[in-house]
């Protein structure tokens, strides 16, 4: 019994160390990348879609946002949630997996897009559209184990 207690204490100390490291920002790594989708005309006349670094970006261009995460720490990250505000100049155009919830009021209320309503200038409610989305959120609903990594992807159109 006594041995068990010591072991438990050691574990707590380890956890304490781990959380301290996480507080310094080293446990989970989060990175953001943006690419622009360009239609490239092939010599045979067909077009193909290519993801490029955004060297030239003009209104109407399709952007692909990729958020990568990795648990580089020593303890699992519980209840892992990624949130990405949609830049003002970008109209949200869907995610690759559809598992997100969205907000159309700067993160105050969240839900599936189909469940959200927008009040127009006359006070009438209409179904929210993708262009109304201000924030996107992915809840993994599980812990992010040590060493595991993943990514979420959403698309947007430059307004």
């Amino acid at each position: 019994m006594k041995n068990w207690q010591i072991e438990k204490l050691t574990a707590c100390v380890a956890a304490l160390f781990a959380s301290t490291a996480a507080a310094a920002g080293t446990q989970v790594q989060l990175s953001s990348d943006v690419f622009v989708e360009k239609q490239i005309r092939q010599p045979d006349g067909s077009t193909s879609l290519v993801l490029e670094q955004p060297k030239l970006v003009t209104p109407g261009d399709n952007l692909v946002f990729i958020v990568k995460f990795k648990n580089a720490g020593a303890a699992p990250a519980e209840n892992f949630i990624v949130t990405n505000p949609v830049p003002n100049a970008v109209a949200f155009n869907g995610t690759s997996d559809g598992t997100e919830t969205v907000s159309i009021d700067n993160g105050e209320n969240w839900g599936l897009l189909s469940a959200l309503r927008v009040k127009d200038t006359e006070g009438n409610l209409r179904p929210a559209q993708m262009a109304d989305v201000t924030h996107i959120r992915w809840s993994l609903n599980q812990s992010l184990p040590v060493g595991s990594e993943g990514k979420v992807i959403f698309r947007g159109v430059v307004r």
Binding site: A15, A18, S19, N79, I81, T83
Partner: peptide
């Protein structure tokens, strides 16, 4: 992007 999670700490 922002991520939130919980640790024992």
């Amino acid at each position: 992007a922002t991520a939130t999670y919980e640790t024992l700490g």
